[in-house]
Amino acid sequence: MIEMIKVSKWFGLFQVLTDVDLKVAAGEKVVVCGPSGSGKSTLIRLVNRLEEHQSGRVIVDGVELTDDPKKTDAVRREVGMVFQSFNLFPHLTVLENLTLAPVWVKHVSRKEAEETAMHFLARVRIPEQAGKYPSQLSGGQQQRVAIARALCMRPKLMLFDEPTSALDPEMIKEVLDVMVELAREGMTMVVVTHEMGFAKTVADRVVFMDGGRIVEAAPPAEFFGAPKTGRARLFLSQVLGH
């Protein structure tokens, strides 16, 4: 589903990603973790070309991402993304947030889009909020709406960029529950997160990054139980210690 081959990226003169190789198969759930500044957000933003890579190749669902805007649009239609700061459209209701892209990008009829929207709102367990504005919802509810919004485009792959980092502790669970359900239904997911419990429960593979490189990648049992590298061990001790 995703293939990254020797990908490097610079911000000006500063190299944020160095020779990254990553393969994600369909149906796989990959958790990306690492200290801040390790490049993990940049990595997943390369998948839907919110960031551009300068060297190497990025191939998503068989389409190679290049300067061609048509290829980028094709990929974005099949890839859903959930952001740390939700990024819901504040001037639209919840329902309108969900129907915007299907109507304007996939040219689905408004009626059909609304049906799909209500279906996914029910899936994330807040169908009654359809008429409200994002500012009237709690953080946990907003993030669930954001997940539903991405799902309305029926993506083949979902990217999560630290989806719970901006939430109050008591709301993290409701979002993680939705993500676990999504995983169990077979969605391909790449998740950048600090929530190690989620990684243990759901991930097929944990990818640890540091300083712009993938340092270690292994199934969770192996990664958490017997980390091979010193940096991974240090990171785990900091994150799991408290």
Binding site: N48, L50, R77, M81, M153
Partner: peptide, 13 residues
Amino acid sequence: DRGQGEAAHALGL
């Protein structure tokens, strides 16, 4: 907010 444009682009707009 920059994130608004990013979310819209991520949706394929």
